[in-house]
């Protein structure tokens, strides 16, 4: 936009300074919890009790991180969050890969091979993005039991795939709808089949939307708590559930530094993804909301 204060009158300069101040204060508000979390996670307990939140650690120590990773108690067990961190990884990777693949094929079939009722199918599936998951929890618990997947990582993968497909289909459908049909029609005339056209024409241009879908699914599933707490047992919990247990375990002294280190460990994977690929993260967030 071109409505910038350009004349450098004293008033304008003051306005500019005020503007920057507000923006920086806002940045501090967003940044503060992360800074406090980091600072607290490297302070010894005595320093936490004696000093203030924002005080820099006088004797920085990495031991809360070590303890959070390998020794802290989460409910019954005391072997840190590492087991659960790997549980999350074991759940996230297959769930992201499967839901993205299925979403890509769905989006492709819905846009390039339209048939009578394909729009209805899309609307039908899209609704899955909006339901509050509380409405599926009880039947899901029972169904997982019937399938022999109760409290297993495979069961959680299945749940995340089922409720992720609506989002991935939406991403790919909206992306493929903007790709001209001429290429696909020409390929069809040449006798190329369904998968061949997908492989040769659609997939090579899909990199951006694959990244969006993978990041969205990764963040959603990594950060999930509801399904994790409802459908897991002690040894199959994802890291978010373990973190909550760790913080709320009431035995012994409250070790705030270990709590914060564990929170950092649970937060790091999605934070790293955000820092590396923020653009795609934002695109995923807005994909369902701002219609192009």
């Amino acid at each position: 936009m071109d409505n910038v204060i350009r004349r450098r009158t004293p008033a304008a300069r003051l306005a500019r300074a005020l503007l920057l101040t507000v923006l920086i204060l806002a940045a501090l508000f967003y940044l503060m919890p992360l800074v406090v979390m980091l600072l607290t996670s490297v302070k010894p307990l005595e320093e936490i009790r004696a000093g203030s939140l924002l005080a820099l650690p006088m004797n920085p120590t990495f031991s809360p991180w070590v303890k959070a990773w390998g020794e802290a108690c989460t409910g019954m067990r005391c072997d840190g969050v590492s087991v659960y961190f790997f549980n999350s990884i074991a759940i996230v990777i297959p769930a992201v890969l499967i839901s993205t693949t299925v979403g890509a094929l769905n989006g492709y079939a819905l846009t390039k091979w339209r048939f009578k009722g394909s729009e209805l199918v899309f609307a039908l599936m899209l609704f899955g993005c909006f339901i509050p998951f509380q409405v599926v929890l009880l039947p899901m618990a029972q169904t997982l039991g019937w399938l022999g997947l109760a409290s297993s990582r495979a069961g959680l993968v299945l749940v995340h795939v089922i409720f992720g497909i609506a989002f991935t289909t939406l991403f790919f459908r909206n992306f493929y709808v903007a790709i001209p049909n001429e290429l696909v029609s020409a390929a069809k005339l040449d006798g190329a089949g369904f998968f061949r056209i997908f492989w040769r024409i659609l997939l090579p241009v899909s990199a951006p939307i694959i990244v969006v879908s993978v990041i969205w699914q990764f963040t959603q599933i990594w950060n999930d708590f509801l399904f994790g707490v409802a459908f897991s047992a002690h040894d199959t919990q994802p890291v978010t559930v373990a973190l909550n247990n760790l913080v709320n375990t009431s035995t012994g002294v409250r070790e705030y530094n270990v709590d914060m280190a564990a929170a950092m460990i649970a937060a790091l994977p999605t934070l790293v993804v955000y820092v590396l690929a923020g653009k795609y993260f934002v695109r995923g967030l807005t994909a369902g909301s701002v219609k192009g």
């Binding site: 919890p33 990594w222 708590f225 913080v247 923020g278």
Partner: peptide, 16 residues
């Protein structure tokens, strides 16, 4: 900076 909290789990947000 404004947007990074959206990448976090609500559990992490709650704990902090």
């Amino acid at each position: 900076l404004y947007l990074y909290p959206m990448a976090l789990s609500f559990i992490v947000t709650g704990v902090v």
